[in-house]
């Protein structure tokens, strides 16, 4: 029984951490129409940033700043934001292909850099020497994991609330306006490039938070954790959940993560021995089919975005306030 509960805690923690990244992607794609082909780079920047800033001194690689944990986590998020700023600054005014290609490229380059720059990131062996916060008080076992889950869930809810507030704010309306008709928004004196850039950065910072939490949970990160497949999983979560809808995004994250772990377990258990080498390929095909299938047959996702008509729906309310 306790084994099952520990497993459920483990599963929920990872799914909740990934949900945060999906929420970040939803701001970018769902609400702003920005294509991020390198989610994993921003996730990874948060993860590496947090561990390098918060870890103990290491001889083999950079680290040992031993920052107070929340500061380290914020530092990791800022790394992700900085990277998004650079990529966005260069591409956001160009046609959308450029952002897609550049973000895809940044993910390839980031993984490559982390794998090779041993002095920075520990190379292929990964980054070690991180003590989980409050580790001395709570130990390593069940209690720690349960409390960490609560911490992650609080951050998930905080992110959700923040994004709900953001998309209801005038800024959120502006984002959707630009997504629907850029020229019209421009004619009202708005600067689409600036607003889009802000959305790209905020979304990436949220992905950085997700990465930071992921690395904290394992107290370890290596290039194996930031492979391109993670980007596809996070997309599949958003596409299945329904782009534009934050609740759907979280539901999609849990659904896809459950399907992924279940298929992995099923294949490793029931697939014949000579097929074991190929279980990864089968899972990748399944994720590919989910993405293509959803786009073909239910592009709005399982939980579609409720389109709001800001003017007629809110006119009364606004008048009263005035």
């Amino acid at each position: 029984m306790i084994g099952l509960i520990s497993y459920l805690i483990f599963f929920t923690t990872v799914a909740a951490i990934l949900s945060i990244a999906v929420l970040g992607l939803n701001l970018q794609w769902g609400n702003s129409g920005l294509f991020n082909g390198g989610v994993v780079a921003f996730f990874g920047a948060g993860a590496y940033g947090t561990l390098i800033l918060g870890g103990t001194a290491q001889s083999a690689h950079l680290g040992g700043f031993e920052l107070f944990y929340p500061l380290a986590l914020i530092g990791g998020m800022m790394c992700a934001g900085l990277m998004a700023w650079v990529v966005g600054k260069l591409t956001i005014r160009l046609r959308h292909d450029y952002l897609a290609i550049a973000t895809f490229g940044v993910a390839v380059a980031f993984e490559n850099l982390m794998r090779n720059a041993e002095g920075l990131s520990g190379g292929a062996q990964g980054l070690r020497g991180f003590e989980r916060p409050l580790h001395a008080w709570l130990g390593d076992g069940f209690t720690y994991n349960a409390i960490f889950l609560v911490f992650v869930l609080i951050l998930l809810i905080a992110t959700y609330r923040f994004l709900e507030l953001l998309i209801r704010s005038p800024y959120g309306r502006l984002l959707r306006a630009i997504r629907e008709d850029e020229t019209a928004a421009q004619s009202l004196g708005k600067d689409p490039a600036k607003i889009r850039l802000a959305s790209l950065i905020i979304g990436s910072v949220i992905m950085g938070l997700s990465g930071g939490l992921y690395a904290t949970f394992y107290a370890f990160i290596s290039p194996q954790d930031i492979l391109p497949i993670l980007t596809f999983q996070i997309w599949a979560m958003l596409i299945v959940g329904g782009a534009g809808n934050n609740k759907g995004a979280v539901a999609g994250a849990f659904l896809i993560w459950a399907a992924w772990t279940a298929s992995g377990w099923g294949l490793s258990r029931f697939a014949p021995l000579e097929m074991q080498l190929y279980t990864g390929s089968i899972q990748f095909i399944l994720i590919g089919l989910v993405i293509v299938g959803m786009l073909l047959w239910r592009p709005q996702g399982l939980f579609p975005e409720k389109l709001v008509i800001s003017q007629s729906g809110r006119a009364k309310h606004v008048k009263n306030r005035e």
């Binding site: 294509f35 959308h96 073909l296």
Partner: peptide, 29 residues
């Protein structure tokens, strides 16, 4: 062609990633 008919250039980009994963891994299998 089917995704194109539904509109949305971004959906096409997503679809192309999905197609790439399927082709690559079917070849691997």
């Amino acid at each position: 062609a089917r995704v194109r008919a539904k509109g949305g250039e971004l959906s096409m980009v997503f679809a192309s990633f999905g197609v790439a994963m399927i082709i690559r891994n079917v070849l691997g299998l």
